[in-house]
Design a binder for these strands. Structure first.
Lengths: 205, 205
DNA sequence: CCCCTTATCTTGACGGCGACAAGATCAGAG
DNA sequence: CTCTGATCTTGTCGCCGTCAAGATAAGGGG
């Protein structure tokens, strides 16, 4: 694992560090994440990552950005088999959201507000924004109104996002014991029941 | 600040560490939190906290538990002037939830799933549980059914919790830019609009 | 073909960190 | 007064992120 490689130059260190970084993230979590361990895992000196990512924040930000892109893929993946019903498509996005949070809990935490990433990179900001735009698109298809054109629709979009995100976060952090004891499939069903009230028509009082 | 105190024994070190610990949490966040700095802030040697809290996890867990208790107070505080309408009381809890998240963002993060607390202490677990029981009580008053007696009511309770928590978290982590640009009071109004669909009657289909 | 510039990676050092062990100080019981 | 246990200090260890200086490779211009 720490075997010396034959060539002085690695060749594709940046990609290798990202791969190893995500592995370590999954193993040790964000708190136990260490640049030196990632470097050693790739078989490279402890200061090598600096050239590609600047500092630890840089690597973590890159990992988070990559996470947001895969996050989007997870939502789209669920939608692929969900037919063309607007309501079903939104629910599918929610399930994809949960899939991602469950399959990469540490990355999920890193992405949503871990302090070890300071100000988000440009790359990170756009990747995160794209993920929300996807949800906003689902909402627009369901309601027939763009969230950016109608405050009530925006409120609904934020509600949807908040509910899904809160559910995923509370599951992830172990705070929702009642639901946590169920198998994942049943958790999903439970989520859909809880989700249902947000799928109705807009109540523009 | 690091002045040597006259007596060898501090007298009330445990409480002083908790106070200084929360201060440091607010200043540097969870990631920058350091036992040694807390100790130095109290004017005590770097190893002194160990006797009262074991290790860093111990101090953080104690801070989180204290946080959950104050969290409950924040919800009750909002309810004090909310009349006796079940719906208004639940909304008030939600607003208190947001108040707390906004006023102690770092503590809020620590409480909900930071990895630097390992397995929750007994104290921490009960404090966290009491906070959820409060919300469950609000739901029960609104619906007339205990969440622990009716799965649909439980789903509703989880939905309420998830939405409020997700909203608070996304605000806290800066991911909800659209809402973040509004003043707090308007954020609260926005939250209530988004929250409304969850306040209706149970749809036990 | 050689040299030179530049990117890449290594080595070594610094201070700060959490944890541990051993010793100093104090308070209170007997 | 002494003994005992709780409380706090001092010193050390290994690990961490960051920085600076040097070694190595790669590629282009002569």
């Amino acid at each position: 694992m720490v075997r010396r490689r034959p060539t002085y130059h690695h060749g594709d260190l940046r990609a290798a560090l990202l791969r190893a970084g995500e592995e370590q993230l999954a193993r040790t979590g964000v708190a136990g994440f260490s640049l030196r361990q990632v470097a050693s895992r790739v078989g490279v000196s402890h200061a090598a990552p600096a050239h590609h990512f600047g500092d630890a924040q840089g690597l973590l930000a890159a990992l988070a950005a990559e996470g947001f892109r895969r996050f989007l893929v997870a939502m789209r993946h669920r939608q692929a088999n969900a037919g063309d019903n607007a309501r079903a498509l939104l629910v599918a996005s929610g399930l994809g959201y949960l899939d991602f949070a469950r399959s990469s809990p540490a990355l999920f935490r890193l992405m949503f507000g871990d302090e070890r990433i300071g100000k988000p990179t440009e790359e990170l900001a756009t990747a995160a924004n794209n993920a929300f735009l996807h949800l906003a698109g689902d909402i627009e298809r369901l309601l027939g109104v763009s969230a950016f054109a109608n405050p009530t629709a925006m409120a609904r979009a934020m509600a949807v996002w908040s509910l899904v995100h809160g559910f995923a976060s509370l599951l992830n952090s172990g705070h929702m014991r009642t639901v946590l004891s169920m198998p994942p499939e049943q958790q999903n069903h439970f989520f859909q029941v809880a989700f249902a009230p947000l799928l109705g028509p807009l109540d523009t009082d």
